[in-house]
Amino acid sequence: MATFVQLLVYGLQLGSIYALLAIGYTMVFGIIRMINMAHGDFLMMGSYAVFFIVSLLFADLMIGPAVALLVILIGSAITGLIGVGVERIAYKPLRSRPKISSMIAAIGVSIFTQNFFRSLPFIGPNPRTFPKLMEDTLFFIGGIQLSMMRLVIIALSIVIMALLYLVVMKTKIGMQMRTVSCDKDASSLMGVNINRVISVTFFIGAALAAISGAFYASSYPILLVTMGATLGNKAFIAAVVGGIGDIRGAVLGGFIMGVVEIMISAVYSELAYGFSFVVLVIILLLKPEGLLGKPMIEKV
């Protein structure tokens, strides 16, 4: 039992990272029906941004939770702006083309960013060690080992996701996002500035990816330019399992993905990776639109 709860904590922590990343996929898909294959690379950019801010400004100082949060926010704002730029340069010109074109453009962006960052002399191919943002303390509750860092990450992720939900449901820009996702042309006729909504969506998506990058790098402190690729794929699957287009679905999918992966690794590590996907396939077989997704009506 203790081992089960222990594994659950590990799974939730991994899941919170998948969830933050999956939100970006789901939001972009919800609004422009495009799968942004380069989304995982925003995670990489975000963690490098935080890495450079910390190592340039604070060197080896332990910066404490408050400053760390501020640094993460600045890093995610930078990444958010990059996200907006990427959309303007690479995706906007293709917006009226078939969806497959923008998906291919996204794959191109992904390969380009990884190799471009690698070619920068101050990044290069070698892995970097992500600095410790706060002192991690271990403590025990009834035989279960908990780490402060893991708990903070899970809690912060939940807070951020709740805030985002409020933004989407209660604010004006959130309402505009929802209208655009329902019908782009009609909302444009109603005076919604589509370009602005899409930019804001990309900003939020990339910024969340950056935050998840900072959290990810705090738990797994090795930075590589290719780190976003696999994570991006998993987050995409999480978004699909939860029901793509639905923010709550992305969160649920992310947590399921993390917990399933950890649990199956513990039971039989030889097959873990493949088997966790089998579980996800079964979920999709039973509910093809994803756990919280609504069946999509194809308009002719």
Partner: peptide, 21 residues
């Protein structure tokens, strides 16, 4: 004797829990 699948795996907590036990 615990395995993981491929270089993309970054989280070894499940395997290490078994090893620790």
């Amino acid at each position: 004797n615990e395995a993981y699948s491929g270089q993309d795996v970054k989280d070894f907590s499940a395997q290490l829990t078994i090893i620790k036990n």
